[in-house]
Structures are given as structure tokens and as C-alpha cells.
Design a protein around this nucleic acid. Structure first.
Lengths: 137, 137
DNA sequence: CTGCATCCCGTAGCCACTACGGGATCAAGC
DNA sequence: GCTTGATCCCGTAGTGGCTACGGGATGCAG
């Protein structure tokens, strides 16, 4: 064996991908990361393909994709299977969810902001926040 | 006993407040709702004060307040303890969190929307979505 | 070869519910 | 009074996506 047979430790790929070490083990448990080779002593030994996959997962998580979506995306990203249409469908569905959450949060922001502002403003006798919570939407 | 000693069933207050029945029992388990009186057979018998409290909780949840915040708000809303300043602090802190989430979601929306749009547009050879997931932020 | 960093694994906790299941109780109709 | 069907009882487990903990085994530098 000349050299390259060693592989990266879990701590190393975790650091490389900017992911918590325990999260990497979690991804393996749920089948999102394939089980890597092991050293004689039982420690995980990863290769660069694992790092790329982990970076892909991190990126997808950062964009808010759920684990199941990522599972699908990883399958669709496999070489020879690059069906951009299906990928777009997954991304578009996720985008729709993001937009729904965005709209809901914007509504909340408006209500809370209005109410809190009224709180610091005019010297009303009652508490605007509590009033809002007592009144039905 | 003339009449009013009966009380509402859990199903009735749940429906009245628009909350899942099992959620009401959950709120009682975690101490957010006080334990109501019981019938001889052990069924919960609520009074109107419970309904008001539950409506308050529902409103606060709809505005995105967490359970611990609601616990605080309920204490601050107790008669004789109406300190609007503290209430405003809780609401303002929550508003800040909402704004942070909003900003993050807006970023995601922009990225996803740009990428998905590029997908349906020009006849590029590769998949823009997968490209984005492969590339670091 | 010693010492310390790292890694092993399983389990439990987080939040705010939701679901399930087998039995008890309630209210209304006859 | 009795039957029937709706409702309610309680405890437990599952959801998503991790994160934390603990006690022991390994890896590697000096």
C-alpha cells in the first residue's frame, strides 16, 4: 500500500463540510450517508466522494430542503440519472412551501410590529399586546 | 344546586377555542391549562374562564409565541399583575425572532426562485438546481 | 509507551403536538 | 330502565432534525 488507503476521519469530514460530527453519524443512521470503510479499530474512514455528498447535503439543508427531499435529490443527482425535470419539480414544490411560510411570517411580523409599536406610543391605559391576545383574530 | 354546576366537556371547549382535543389535554399535562373539575365518572368539566384562557393561548400560538413565552404572558396577564412593560419585552423579543426568520426565508426564496427559473429558461446542458447544490454558497 | 485527543455506540432529550388503542362514561331515544 | 353510539379516559409512541451524554475503545505524537 503506497499511501491513499487511509481515509478521512469523521471529525475531518465533519469539519470539512461544516457539519456537526454527531449529525454525520445521524445521516448515516438514517441512510442519507452511505456507511464508509472502517479502520481495524472500527473508526470510520471516508473518501472524497463522501465529502462531496456531505457538502451537497449541507447545501440542500441550508436551502431548507427536508431530509426526504434531499434523499430524492441525491438519487436524481446520481450520474446517468440526471433528470432535471424531476429535480425542478422538487425544488419548485419546496419553493412554494417557502413562499407560504414567508407569507405567514410577514403577516405575523405586521401584527406584532403594529402592536408593539402602539405599546411604546400613546399612553393608553390597557396593554395593547394583552388586548390583542384577548381578542379573537 | 340550582343548575350551573355542570361545566363544559373537553370536546366542547376544544371546539369553542378551535383547538384539537388532545392538544388541550397536552396543555394541561405541561401546566399551561389548570386542571379542571371532574364529573363523578372522571370526565373534565370546564368553566368559561378555561375557555378564555384557551382562546388566549390559541391566539398567542397563532402569533408564533412559544409555550414558555405564553406561560410568561399568562402570568403577566393575571389581574393585578398587568405590567405592560414586561409584556412588551416578551413581544418585542419574539418580533425580533420573527424578523430574523423572515430575513432568512426571504434569502432562501430569492435563491430558489432564481434557480428554478433558470431551470425552465434557456436550454442549458446541466441542471441549474443540482449545480447550485454542488457548488458552495 | 504514555498520555491525550478523537471516535465508538446506544439512548434520551428538544419542541409542539398528533396518533393510537382498549376501555369507561355520558346523553339521548325508546 | 336499557341500549346504543358518541365522547372521553389515560399512557405511550411517533414526528423532524438534530444535539447531548456517558463510559469505554482507539489513534497518534512525543
Amino acid at each position: 500500500m503506497a499511501k491513499g488507503a487511509r481515509g478521512l476521519s469523521i471529525g475531518q469530514i465533519a469539519a470539512a463540510a461544516g457539519i456537526n460530527l454527531e449529525t454525520v453519524r445521524y445521516y448515516e443512521r438514517i441512510g442519507l450517508m452511505p456507511p464508509p470503510a472502517r479502520t481495524e479499530g472500527g473508526h470510520r474512514a471516508y473518501d472524497p466522494a463522501h465529502v462531496r455528498r456531505l457538502a451537497f447535503i449541507r447545501q440542500a439543508r441550508a436551502l431548507g430542503f427536508g431530509i426526504e427531499d434531499i434523499r430524492t435529490l441525491l438519487a436524481l443527482a446520481a450520474p446517468g440519472h440526471r433528470s432535471c425535470g424531476e429535480v425542478r419539480d422538487v425544488a419548485a414544490a419546496h419553493l412554494a412551501e417557502v413562499r407560504a411560510k414567508l407569507a405567514r411570517l410577514a403577516r405575523l411580523e405586521r401584527i406584532l410590529s403594529d402592536t408593539v409599536e402602539r405599546c411604546s406610543g400613546a399612553p393608553t391605559p390597557a396593554c395593547p399586546v394583552l388586548d390583542m391576545l384577548d381578542a379573537p383574530m
